[in-house]
């Protein structure tokens, strides 16, 4: 069963890798057929990935007897979930916009995240790694189904985390689209736009897409923070305690609130708001990863948590 889970995840990873390659080649050769192939591969990868989550949940609960186990309980699983939700969000974006060129950026980012999910232990102990077999062992160790710490054994785990990741993935896609916007903007400002400008979409479409993604991600972020507070009440007996994670979640919330405020009320558009959305994702990443080294309570992932 567990071997089968490994194969399923490998297949999903392979599909994502091929999708990224197809999109990158499509970006340079402008072959529409490669873009369509890329899109199908993302769908395939996401379907396999979803099956993998179901299988892990089954193995964890039945075989390992973990009562409250959900397959997003450690670094690997949480990154893996992030990658999956980005892929799903991107499929939805493709259904709306059909801009294949975005695939090179979004799936590039997604691939980095999924790859990092398996290999992160190697980065802290790179000097000790010898040979590929050791790399493989480290990857497999990080992919194993984890032991659960008491704080995570809660129904809120199954609700709070996915809501947060759906909103994070909207911000991640908005970030990738924002990079595309800034590249196109720079080309047009240069007064001699080159081949790159030709293959990138127009500014208006990109700006609107970013706005829509944030407009979708922000209410979910709000909901996620509220659910998190509710969980905190169950776990620690208070809704809000200015723990580093909580503080930074609030900073993230404010960053995107400022984005929406600037766009809707102060009629900022284009460049400035796009830069804000790119910075916003930086804050998301810090809240997600960086804070775990600061937070006493949310340090589950760096094994500092209680």
């Amino acid at each position: 069963m567990e071997t089968f889970e490994i194969y399923i995840f490998n297949a999903a990873y392979l599909a994502y890798t091929l999708a990224t390659v197809a999109y990158l080649v499509c970006a340079f050769t402008r072959k529409e057929s490669l873009g369509r192939a890329g899109c199908l591969l993302v769908v395939l990868g996401a379907a396999l990935h979803l099956a993998d989550f179901a299988l892990r949940a089954y193995i964890g609960r039945v075989d390992h007897g973990l009562k409250h186990y959900v397959p997003w309980s450690n670094w690997f699983e949480s990154f893996s979930l992030f990658g999956f939700v980005i892929a799903a969000t991107f499929v939805a974006v493709q259904k709306i916009s059909r801009l294949h060129i975005l695939g090179a950026f979004v799936m590039g980012l997604q691939w980095v995240i999924v790859t990092f999910s398996m290999t992160y232990p190697l980065f802290s102990s790179w000097d000790k790694v010898e040979g590929t077999s050791q790399i493989w062992q480290a990857v497999m160790a990080s992919r194993a189904i984890p032991q659960l710490m008491p704080a995570l054994q809660s129904i809120w785990m199954a609700i709070h985390v996915p809501v947060m990741f759906i909103s994070y993935s909207a911000f991640a896609v908005a970030f990738a689209v924002g990079i595309v916007y800034l590249l196109q903007e720079r080309e047009l400002k240069s007064r001699h736009p080159g081949v790159m400008s030709g293959s990138l979409p127009d500014l208006e479409t990109l700006d609107l897409l970013i706005y829509r993604l944030i407009g979708w991600g922000f209410p979910l972020l709000t909901l996620g923070v509220i659910l998190g507070a509710r969980w905190a009440y169950d776990a620690w007996g208070r809704y809000w305690g200015w723990d580093a994670k909580e503080t930074w979640a609030l900073i993230t919330w404010f960053t995107y609130a400022i984005y929406l405020h600037m766009r809707l009320v102060m009629s900022w558009k284009g460049r400035k708001t796009v830069i804000l959305s790119v910075i916003g994702f930086g804050v998301v990443i810090f809240t997600y990863i960086g804070v775990n080294y600061l937070s006493e309570l949310h340090g589950f992932l760096s094994n500092r948590g209680s």
């Binding site: 196109q184 081949v195 127009d202 500014l203």
Partner: peptide
Amino acid sequence: THTGIAHGALSVGSVAVSLAEKIFG
């Protein structure tokens, strides 16, 4: 599709249009 002969606007008017389309769609 296999060569670049159809790429890029060649007159001032069509360059203006293609730039406008890169801004406004």
